[in-house]
């Protein structure tokens, strides 16, 4: 099953909605809550990045019995130094984003921590594609 969402780069009030939809879809399929939470965190951070830096884009979630693969694709300016961007605390987000509770340089580290595989394809001027894979491991517990 594949879910697809357009993520607006202009309306901040909508940011996070696609992640909420995917979370609910995984819940309806009976995926274990810990894996749902990990997926939700990764996708929400990626969605915020897409809105903040990428000018919006397309989010897709491909669901299999044992995993979900989320692909977030934008046509924004790209990431010039990925290693730097992966460092906790490093941020290029403007002040108004910080006032919204994001932009503190936690996004990519949060995605790395919560995913089983994280791939970032980006180059200046060529946009960014973030691919997140989360496995549904039933031994993971409830996530509570």
């Amino acid at each position: 099953m594949k879910l697809r969402y357009e993520v607006s780069g202009e309306d901040m009030s909508l940011a996070g909605k696609a992640s909420g939809e995917v979370k609910r879809a995984l819940g309806r399929l009976g995926v274990n809550p810990a894996a749902i939470k990990r997926t939700a965190v990764c996708m929400y951070e990626a969605e915020m990045n897409m809105v903040i830096h990428g000018g919006g884009g397309v989010a897709e979630a491909e669901l299999s019995p044992d995993r979900v693969v989320v692909t977030m694709r934008d046509s924004g300016p790209g990431i010039p130094d990925l290693e730097l961007a992966m460092q906790e605390g490093y941020s290029t987000a403007p002040e108004w984003i910080r006032e919204m509770g994001f932009g503190a340089g936690m996004g990519l580290p949060n995605m790395k921590r919560n995913s089983d595989e994280l791939r970032i394809d980006s180059a200046p001027g060529k946009g960014t594609t973030v691919t997140i894979m989360v496995k549904f491991d039933s031994s993971e517990g409830t996530g509570a």
Partner: peptide, 17 residues
């Protein structure tokens, strides 16, 4: 507990159960 009054606080809470 938060002083952040915007939809992201509700959405974050929702995603984190």
């Amino acid at each position: 507990l938060t002083g952040l009054v915007n939809p992201q606080s509700i959405r974050t809470a929702d995603l984190m159960d």
